[in-house]
Structures are given as C-alpha cells and as structure tokens.
Design a protein around this nucleic acid. Structure first.
Length: 472
DNA sequence: TGAAATGTTGGGGCG
DNA sequence: ACGCCCCAACATTTC
C-alpha cells in the first residue's frame, strides 16, 4: 500500500504517531508531503522570526527525508487542492496525517478529507500533538473541563503516552518539490537574531534544559533571569519536538537522579497547560474571537489607544514590564512569568482590550500558538476558563520585586537602569534624586516616568469589569 | 499562578 | 503595678 504522509505541525521523523503508522501500513512505502502556503504566511499577523523558524525546520526535515532515501514533496497552494493532487499523482491508496485542533484547521481538514473520500482515497488521522488528546479527559458528566486542576488530575489518571520509534525509510517518488520561499520573498526583514529551527537545534535546547535548568526548575521557573526554563515552546508548536519525547526525557532524568523528581513532575504539569488550552479552544471555538465568558465581551475598554505603542516598545515606565517587552522585541521570546505580568499590565493598568495584546504576541513570538496564546491572554484578562478572577490584579512593582529581586532581568533588558540600586530598580520614581543622579538616570529623559498610576488604574479596572458584569 | 484593606493580637513604651 | 496606646506582625476579608 502506498501512503502519502502529510506533514503539518509535526516536522520530524522521530516519535511521529501518524508517520509511524503510515510506515507500518505501507511497509516502507511512505511518500512524505508538505503543503506550502506562502500566501498564508505573508499575511499580517505572523512573526518574521516564526516564519524563519518554520522555513529552517522545513529545510531540516527535507534534508532528513533525503537521507532516508526519498525527498520531501512540496506543493505550493491550498491543501484543499494540493493534497488530493499529490495523492492522485503519486498513486497513493491512502493519506495519513496528525490532527490539529484549531477550529479553522479542522474545518480545512474536513474539506481535504471529503475531497479525498470522493476520489476513493482513504484517510487516516491520528492524535499526536498533545499528551492527552481531546475526548480522553472529560468530566464525570461527559463535558470538557474548564478548570485546569481537575483537568490535570484526569489526565494523570491516564497512562503517559510513550514515544514512537523514528521512521528512517521513505519511498522514492517523482512528486514536485516546489522550492520554499525565502524570508525576503515573503516580505519579512531579517534584522532580528535567529531562533534556530529544525530538529538538531530542538534537541540541543532540550538537552541544555535537561543538563541545566531542570534541576532548578521547580524553585526557579518563575524567575525570568534564572534561566531555569526550557525554551522549547516553538519546537512543540511546529513539532520539531514531540511532547511524548519531552515528557519521557524529563521523567527519565528524574529516574536517574531522584532529586530531579519534583522539578520533572512540575514540568510535565506545565506541559499539560498546553493540552488544556488546546482542548478549551477545540471545545469552545468562540474563544478565538471573544471571551470564554461571554458576559465579558461587554467590557468597554477605556484605555488610551496611544498607550499600546508604549507597551509594545517597552516604554511604560514600569521597569519589569519594559524589560519583558524588550526581551520580546529583541529575541521573539518572553519568559512565562513576564507574559503574565505584561498581559495583566495591558488589560488592567492600561485598560486595553486583551485581543490587542494577543495579536501583538502573535506578530512577535517565535512560539506563537493560537490556543496557548489565546488561553494565556484570557487567563490574564480574567475572561477565560479557570481565569484568575478579574479582581486579582498584578502589581507590576511587587511582581518585579518578588520574581526579579536583584533586578538582574531589568538590568539586562533595560540597560539604562543598570546602575540603579536594587532597592529602587523596580520603582525608580520613588528613588531619592541623588541616588538616580548617581545611577546616571534622569526620569523623563533616560527612562520614562510611569505612563499610568497603578493604584488609580487598578480602581478603574475594577469598576470597568464590575460594570460589564452588571450589564450582563 | 494577588493585592490591598481591614481586623486581631501581643509586646513594649510610658504616664 | 497598671492601664492605655502605638504599632508591627500576622490573619482575615474584600475587591
């Protein structure tokens, strides 16, 4: 049997469920296929660094497929057309792929599947992307979970899926191999430093984490300057790493060294947040455009539109917020604790719609993933599932003092504050003038004064949310 | 996976 | 010695 395997966000030969099944059913006669849609990449709303990451990962996959005795077939255009064309041309009996759970991708896949069905070509789809696929963890009444902790407990009662062996043999074919577009052709500038794509870079990141950050993960994961985080979100996003491989590696490290156990379990629990938000978006597709709690669509965001740019550029006058936003601008990545703090700041201090922040993140993050990003923003805005209640408002100064006590993170990303003493680093406006002068900082000149007053904005945010709740 | 306001307690200063 | 007050420390409540 000839099986066309359609690679999507699973750009690897190792531990790939659908590819493994295809190789088994086809007895080695697997035809590797990718549908390239430069038009979809070129549209506004995607980070250049993520496009580069995708192109590098595809080039890496193509190389791996060649070493496996074949070539990655690449068709340019919409998959609703190209998948069927490729399957026919290759004389495939079946097309296999791993499911994606975003509403729009599922809709697209239904069309592809229908077209293949009409042509008499069999389709098999697999769960691969998550540790626990949708449908496997439901409440007693059969509904999807909307609170994280019971969701996690339900997932933990299921066996953790084990990695699949790599598929090292692919079949030769004469399908077209359209060249991948370059970043420049897609209209992206390449000024930003790279976040290297592909499986080798992914394995390197995972290995670095296993040797370094993991031992400190449980106690230090919330400290952005500590470097105890894994930085594999982009790899999970496009599938240069499988979540099974990651979980197995972390737990294996903990078996070899019992001291790692608490950290390993904490890390797997964090992986499950990714599953949770994928489930939420899958079962509640209205979240893509509006609040999970529909009454919060009634919130009238009364912030000043001009403040959005100050936030984006890291010039809010709140050192931790500015450091985080500059980390994003410079690297295409932001530590999770920082994401929570800047999201709280945009929604509850600047009083701007969480969707503005969500969109900005998608335009900047190397790991931009619809479900995780949307879930995280709705959590911070208090509009989502298991969201912190709207009255839980981060104080950007206290968060900074708690999670960046020495100011190391601020000094790294806001170097104009580097010489401000620890005591004042998160609230330079309170520092005695002489101290600021000695640090070489004049507020309003070298570093901005706070764009808004936290205490006052906190009260306005509470009133804003309360009034929406009343109207609903 | 908060923070601020408010309440309570207990030690110590002091008349 | 006693009562009063202050206030830090901690707990609870509220947003």
């Amino acid at each position: 049997m000839r099986v066309l395997f359609w690679f999507r966000k699973d750009l690897r030969l190792e531990d790939n469920t659908g590819l493994h099944e295809a190789a088994r059913d086809a007895r080695g006669d697997v035809l590797p296929f990718y549908a390239s849609e430069p038009e979809a990449l070129g549209r506004d709303g995607i980070a250049a660094i993520r496009v580069r990451f995708l192109l590098e990962s595809l080039a890496d996959l193509a190389g791996a497929v060649e070493r496996a005795g074949s070539a990655l077939a690449i068709a340019r255009g919409s998959p609703t057309r190209t998948v069927l064309e490729a399957a026919r041309r290759a004389g495939a009996d079946a097309v296999y792929w791993n499911d994606e759970y975003e509403p729009s991708l599922m809709e697209r896949d239904r069309k592809v599947e229908a077209a293949l069905g009409r042509a008499g070509i069999r389709v098999r789809r697999f769960h691969d992307r998550l540790l626990t696929p949708p449908g496997m963890a439901m409440t007693a009444s059969g509904r999807p979970f909307v609170v994280y902790t019971p969701f996690r407990r339900a997932c933990e009662r299921l066996p953790l899926p084990l990695p699949f062996p790599a598929v090292r043999r692919h079949a030769p074919h004469d399908l077209p191999r359209s060249p991948l577009p370059t970043l420049e052709e897609l209209g992206f500038s390449t000024g930003q430093q790279a976040w290297p794509g592909g499986r080798r870079a992914a394995r390197a990141r995972l290995g670095r984490f296993l040797r370094g950050g993991l031992a400190r993960y449980a106690p230090e994961r919330d400290f952005p300057a500590a470097g105890a985080h894994a930085s594999i979100s982009a790899d999970l996003g496009l599938g240069t790493l499988s979540p099974r491989t990651v979980a197995a590696a972390v737990l294996e490290a903990a078996r070899a060294d019992r001291r790692l156990r608490a950290s390993a379990e904490k890390f797997v629990a964090e992986l499950r947040w990714r599953d949770f938000y994928a489930h939420v978006l899958h079962y509640f597709p209205h979240c893509e455009r509006g609040a999970f709690r529909r009454e919060h669509d009634a919130i009238r965001w009364e912030g000043r539109p001009g403040h959005l740019a100050r936030w984006q550029e890291g010039r809010t006058g709140y050192p931790f917020v500015d450091a985080a936003m500059r980390e994003l601008a410079a690297t295409g990545f932001m530590h999770n604790r920082s994401r929570m703090i800047v999201a709280s700041f945009l929604t509850k201090d600047l009083l701007l719609d969480w969707r503005l922040g969500e969109r900005h993140f998608m335009r900047r993050l190397v790991d931009g993933d619809l479900a995780s990003n949307n879930g995280g923003w709705q959590w911070a805005a208090g509009t989502g599932t298991d969201a912190q209640p709207f009255f839980r408002i981060f104080n950007p100064v206290l968060q900074g003092e708690r999670f960046d006590p020495g100011g190391e993170y601020v000094r790294r990303w806001a170097p104009e504050l580097a010489r401000v003493p620890e005591r004042w680093i998160h609230r330079p406006w309170d520092a005695p003038p002489l101290v600021l002068a000695e640090a070489g900082v004049r507020l309003g000149k070298h570093y901005p004064r706070p764009v808004v007053d936290h205490a006052a904005q906190r009260e306005r945010a509470l009133a804003m949310y309360r009034s929406a709740d009343r109207r609903a």
